[in-house]
Design a protein around this nucleic acid. Structure first.
Length: 519
RNA sequence: GCUGGGUUCGUAUAACGGUUAGUACAUAAGAUUCUCAAUCUUAGAAUAGGAGUUCGAUUCUCCUACCCAGUACCA
């Protein structure tokens, strides 16, 4: 086979928000394409108009964009699916519903070559067949074993067939799956797989009622036309792989048939089964990349809105079912592109671990500069009506960032560095706010007020500790009393840090307020 | 049911026939600090079960169990 430029595609159906498992599939496609210097293409598979959900298409593209997964083809710079062909997007339109004109001839071609046939069975007739089979404890299957007694172009005369084609508008074209043929397939992840064609059914390829192809036909035709070299998709497609192989063969396209890779599904953190929105709601984690509101008004939380950095989300997702072959866990997108390899992709489904997702965010948060984090913190401060000097915010961030998982945690951790405590933790007060302690704490406060050296760790911090130790006062009790007065709770930054940040005036003010509130 | 896929600590995974079965998250204990967090140290924790091939199987083959997917005129 001649060397072809690598071209992979992500082909979602706009039936709802993109699940994180879908993002992972897109990510692996993207990594594979970029690693091989090829193209990552988006194609919208919307041949089922009944399941179309407004906004889903935009959501999918926005989600990928947030993750840094930028398509080379199919979507323009504004994030819109391309409808008219150009040099950059030669295969437009990239929405199957807008490609409806091109599929019928391919279906007819298969009929002409004897690989497919017209079927005139009504949905009701098929439902009856299913019910009858079920009554006998069997499963109805439309294939070699039953097609001979059903209503189709193989069982009626050519004249009758043309008449039905004319009169009826609910006929279909079905693929004629051969009997008892071993279909031999190769999967990039699973290796060699064989299936006996007798177990397969004669899939509907084209529907007169909708004047549209079904997934299988549209998918194969478009992958062929768009010169796709590798199909990387979810495991749910593995059972239809033999059909797809036979379709390529029937069209005579086996020379350019793409290679296939079927990705195992993402599983729920506890119990069995695939990850669903319900699990997220129940256990408190998002299953979607971005916040989503369904047309019915139902909300779903998103990783972005929950405070995850896209780099952390992507890194976490990449490691769910793939590994570099060593212990390394942190990868930027570019590093993933370098390191990714299909044969390190896990065969089994991976249970999603929300704790690990948080851990990744924490790691990425630490990697960011104080100034960068401060910039993200400023809007949150503004929400709390706090206007602070930017350099002061930077100083605060430097001290608190190791204690946080998300930027949004900053406020809970450090609100007392921006305004006086509004209340005092009751348990901490009961534990530490005793006369023998706070009288000493007040003396330390007086000492700080009188201190006139540099407001640094080495200055006021050291002096304060020396003062307490010199008097042989209980360090822990005194400090916790002070922290309660200054920060509203006994947990938090070191007293010296707090004093240095808020300054002497605030210390005095807060001590007086605590006296009033607690004594 | 049938067809296909899968199975290493609780979770994600490493070990492409030879290791005291490694790492990370989580858990627990200890150290440290004025508290909390962070950090450091340590601990417990796995090859689903059974046959076979082999000098030797986590790794190869078969059987069983369990899990997942598909079984639509949905994708």
């Amino acid at each position: 086979m001649t060397q072809r430029r690598t071209r992979v595609r992500f082909a979602p159906s706009p039936t709802g928000p993109l699940h994180m498992g879908g993002v992972r599939t897109a990510l692996y496609n993207y990594l594979f394409a970029k690693q091989n210097g090829g193209d990552f293409i988006i194609r919208i598979e919307d041949t089922d108009s009944h399941r179309f959900v407004p906004g889903a298409e935009k959501y999918i593209i926005d989600s990928l964009r947030w993750c840094g997964i930028i398509p080379d083809e199919g979507v323009d710079e504004n994030g819109c699916v391309v409808e008219t062909a150009s040099e950059k997007h030669p295969h437009a339109p990239y929405r199957q519903s807008q490609r409806r004109g091109i599929y019928r001839k391919y279906a007819e071609q298969l009929v002409a070559s004897g690989n497919a046939y017209y079927a005139f069975d009504t949905p009701e007739a098929l439902a009856r067949e299913r019910a009858e089979a079920e009554a006998r404890g069997e499963t109805f299957i439309y294939n070699w074993s039953t097609r001979g007694r059903l209503l189709n172009s193989l069982t009626v005369s050519p004249e009758e067939c043309s008449r039905l084609l004319q009169e009826r508008d609910d006929w279909t074209i079905r693929f004629k799956v051969p009997e008892n043929r071993i279909v031999k397939m190769d999967d990039l992840i699973r290796g060699h797989v064989e299936v006996n064609s007798s177990t397969l059914d004669d899939k509907v390829l084209w529907k007169k009622a909708d004047v549209l192809p079904t997934y299988h036909l549209a998918n194969i035709v478009d992958d062929h036309l768009m010169e796709i070299t590798e199909v990387i998709r979810g495991e749910e497609w593995l059972p239809s792989l033999p059909l797809h192989y036979m379709l390529y063969e029937a069209f005579g396209w086996q020379e350019t048939m793409p290679r296939f890779a079927h990705l195992a599904l993402l599983l729920k953190p506890v119990g069995n089964g695939k990850l669903s929105k319900r699990d997220g709601d129940k256990m408190g984690f998002p299953v979607f990349p971005l916040h989503w509101v369904s047309p019915e008004g139902e909300h779903s939380r998103g990783y972005r809105e929950d405070g995850y950095f896209p780099e952390a989300f992507v890194n976490m997702l990449a490691m769910l079912g793939w590994n570099p072959g060593n212990d390394r866990e942190m990868f930027t997108m570019d590093e993933l592109i370098q390191a990714f390899s299909m044969d390190k992709v896990q065969k089994a489904g991976a249970k999603f671990n929300p704790d690990k997702a948080k851990w990744y965010n924490k790691e990425y948060l630490r990697l960011k500069s104080d100034r960068e984090l401060a910039e993200l913190f400023v809007p949150i401060l503004e929400e709390h009506s706090v206007k602070a000097d930017f350099d002061y915010v930077v100083k605060v961030v430097a001290l608190i960032k190791e204690r946080a998982t998300f930027v949004k945690d900053f406020w809970d951790i450090a609100s007392y560095l921006f305004r006086d405590p509004q209340q005092y933790d009751e348990k901490d007060a009961a534990k530490f706010w005793k006369e023998e302690n706070y009288t000493l704490a007040f003396k330390v406060a007086d000492f700080i007020a009188a201190y006139d050296g540099p407001m640094t760790h080495e200055g006021v911090g050291a002096a304060m500790e020396e003062y307490i130790k010199g008097n042989e006062w209980p360090m822990g009790k005194v400090m916790n009393c002070l922290r309660l007065a200054l920060a509203g709770a006994s947990s938090g930054l070191g007293i010296a840090d707090i004093v240095i940040l808020i300054g002497k005036d605030a210390v005095n003010r807060r001590i007086e307020a605590a006296k009033k509130a607690l004594c």
